[in-house]
Amino acid sequence: MDYFSGLQLKDLGFLAEAAGRTLLISGVSIGIGSLVGLIFGWLLTVLGRTGRFLLNAVLDVFRSIPLLIQLVLFYNLFPIIGFSLGPFAAGTLVLTVYTVALVSNVTRSGLESVSPDLRRAARSLGLSYWQDMRHIVWPVGLRAVFPAWVGVALSVVKDSALVSVLGYVELLRASQTLITRTQEPLIILAIAGAFYFALSFPMARAASLYEKRWAQ
C-alpha cells in the first residue's frame, strides 16, 4: 500500500482526524456565534443612539484586529487572570466572538433592508410590533441575510486554520507536521486544499444561486 513514498495509510487517518477537528471547532463557533450574532444584529437595529454606538464599537474591535493576534492575546490572557484554557477552548472562544462580530453586521444590514413600506403595510393590517417582527421583518430579513451568513460561516471555517497557532492540531497544522516528516508537500497540500474546497465551493455556489433567485 505504498502509493506515495513516505506517506502511509495511517497518515491519511491522521489527516482525517484533523479535518474532523477543523469541522468541530468551526461548527461549535459558528453555531454559538451565529445565535448571539443574530441577537446582537437585531439589537443594533432597535437600540438607541448610544447603545448602538457602544455595541458597534465593541464588535468593530474584533473586525479591526488580526484574528491571529486575537488568538494569541486571549490564549495568554487567561493564565494571567488565574486560570488556563486549552487550545480548543481558547480557540473556540475567540472564533465564536469573531463570528458574533461578523454575523451581527450582516444581520443588521439584512434587517435594515426590509423596506419601511412593507412594514407600514404590515402594521396597517393591524399587526403588532412583535407580530410584524415575527411574520414580516425576520422572515424577509433573514432571507436577505442568509447568503451573507453562508459567506461568514465559510470564512470562519477557513479562518479556523489559524487556531493552529495555539497548537491545536486542525487540518493545516496536521498537514504541516506531515510535510515536515514525509517531505511530500504537494500531495499533502492537495489533500488539505481539496478538503476545504469541497466544503466551501458547493455551499458558496448554492448561496449565490439562492441570492440570485431571491433577488428577482
Binding site: K158, L172, Q176, E184, L186, L189, F201, A204
Partner: peptide, 20 residues
Amino acid sequence: IARNTPVLFQLFFFGFGLGA
C-alpha cells in the same frame, strides 16, 4: 481556489508547495 481555501493554505502552497 482563492475564495474557497484558507489564506494560510495559500501561503503554505507558495512556501512548501513551490519548494517541492
